[in-house]
Design a protein around this nucleic acid. Sequence first.
DNA 1: CTGAAAGCGCTAACAT
DNA 2: ATGTTAGCGCTTTCAG
Lengths: 342, 342
Amino acid sequence: MSSKTEPTIHDLAKKLNISASTVSRALNDNPRISQKTRDMIKAAALELGYQPNTIASNLRNRKSNTIGIVVPLINRHFFSSVISGVEDVAFAAGYNVVISQSNDEGEKEQRIVRSMFANRVDGLIISIAMKTTKFDHLQLFAGKKIPLVFFDRIVREIEADRVVVDDFNGGYKVTKHLIEQGRKRIAHLTGPLNLITYSDRKRGYKQALVDHHLEVDEELIIVNNLTRTDGLMAVQQLLKLKNRPDAIFCGNDTTALSAILHLKEIGIKVPEEIAIVGFSNEPFSEVVTPSISTIKQPGFEMGQKAAQMLIEQIETKEQTATYETVTMPTELIIRESSFLKR
Amino acid sequence: MSSKTEPTIHDLAKKLNISASTVSRALNDNPRISQKTRDMIKAAALELGYQPNTIASNLRNRKSNTIGIVVPLINRHFFSSVISGVEDVAFAAGYNVVISQSNDEGEKEQRIVRSMFANRVDGLIISIAMKTTKFDHLQLFAGKKIPLVFFDRIVREIEADRVVVDDFNGGYKVTKHLIEQGRKRIAHLTGPLNLITYSDRKRGYKQALVDHHLEVDEELIIVNNLTRTDGLMAVQQLLKLKNRPDAIFCGNDTTALSAILHLKEIGIKVPEEIAIVGFSNEPFSEVVTPSISTIKQPGFEMGQKAAQMLIEQIETKEQTATYETVTMPTELIIRESSFLKR
DNA sequence: CTGAAAGCGCTAACAT
DNA sequence: ATGTTAGCGCTTTCAG
């Protein structure tokens, strides 16, 4: 074992009879060190099994070369796509990415974000948890002018760059499609309306109804957390109405799925009796029977964009206090659950 | 803005006319500081908006209180379950978790693991990428006696704690089930055999055939990377055989799905003509038509176990050089794709 | 082209 | 119960 402590630049320096600063410079390819010396030092480093200690370097540089991303759940296809997009541009730009999930819990989100701050990430990309209502953890970043980019689930109260999808338009397109399929009583199942994504989709839904001279019936609008169970409960509730809906626009694919499964089970035909549309294009939506119509969000591209904006902020010394909001298009994918062949 | 630099314990100390060490101790609830002083200091910290700099603390303590986990893909249900399990016990024990994905690429894995090392994670939990063949990045941990736990896709060449599923038994159970369903020519679609998970499943498959006096036909065994396209290609290849299989044991659910979709498309009945079984119990396997029989691996529990073992190692000063391998049970879930009702 | 010295922010002997 | 001091490993003026 011996006194096993990692070799440092000082060990290298001593061994080579030069100074630690020269070693440091050589390892960082500083042109002020002759090529010959650099090579020599690097060879010695390799031989000694030297591994740079980024913690020390980060402390000194007040920079971690790391960006954080926090999402509600990493195993949602949309979010993992965004993460991949972020990694794509971040790695290319020489940044590391640390990923965390809030499980849609405000408290865990607080903890994660604070820990990322304490670890001095150079910037943060975040889609907030469903249950987040306090924002002081985010204020930590915003207030200290540490680059921050919101995506998808943004918070209006905090000024920052934003990457969102056109949820209003998404909601509108879904509803219009259902109307064109001849549906008259279109229900809407949505998530917490403090989240702008959901309230925008709902606005789109209502606008489409209005534009097509259909009544907006609040009885047909159900708000919950869009879990699988929530989807089931909502459908059961809708089925109890004297005047049943003939279509349901679900806030996500999970609830769309649970609606379909329940309807199948009790013998109600989808889409003939009740048409279903989801949101997000989870992989399963394509392979269920009937396959689920849904809205595709460009996750990977959103991640790329968010990372670009963040890195731009990080690397621009001048903190111009102007923030940008990028809105990405959505695409309606029509599948069996809402399309009646004749 | 003024000279905006984060307040440090020294700023606090100066303001309160005490020493930095007292501040440090108070903030860490060191009993050597009187309760009164502690409260006073904490109040001042709050007021100043003091935020501890964990980088500095980590450097000093030679400990990051962080454990790293790297998986091939974060959006595989199995892997995200493992991650959740790890987070569950790690958070409870006061550790942060940094997550990364290798995208099944050896090179990205190298980069990630080195970066985690450079950031001095206290330990690493990893399931290696399909294409990993060099292990020097992992040797970095093993060699320096930094706690390391492999799970699922382990590396035999490196001594470490391991958490695996009983893949042999899983493969055996699947095959036995198919035999009991009356299948005689059972094909097997597997991943790279340098990965022990796959070679063990294959061993189980063969053993079951032998035990039931069925011939092992190498023609029926196809090795590839188990992507969706790979699944398609494999099925097409199998269908070209003069003597077609009547069942396919697929190495994962992705290929099971693509097999089913293709067979449906060309009018071959599943399970009547060809039965299909997958592996891993991805969420979609339950909701496709026909639903996919598969093997369930206890991901969350594996993550918990891995984290427990890792933390145990971290916190035990005495590095007893004895490593443990924990084998978790699998469960066969029989669904429509392999079960013939009569 | 290279070295000396100071310091990033925090902690832990070792005092007192 | 609190303060002094030294240093974690690296980078960076400032000198030469």
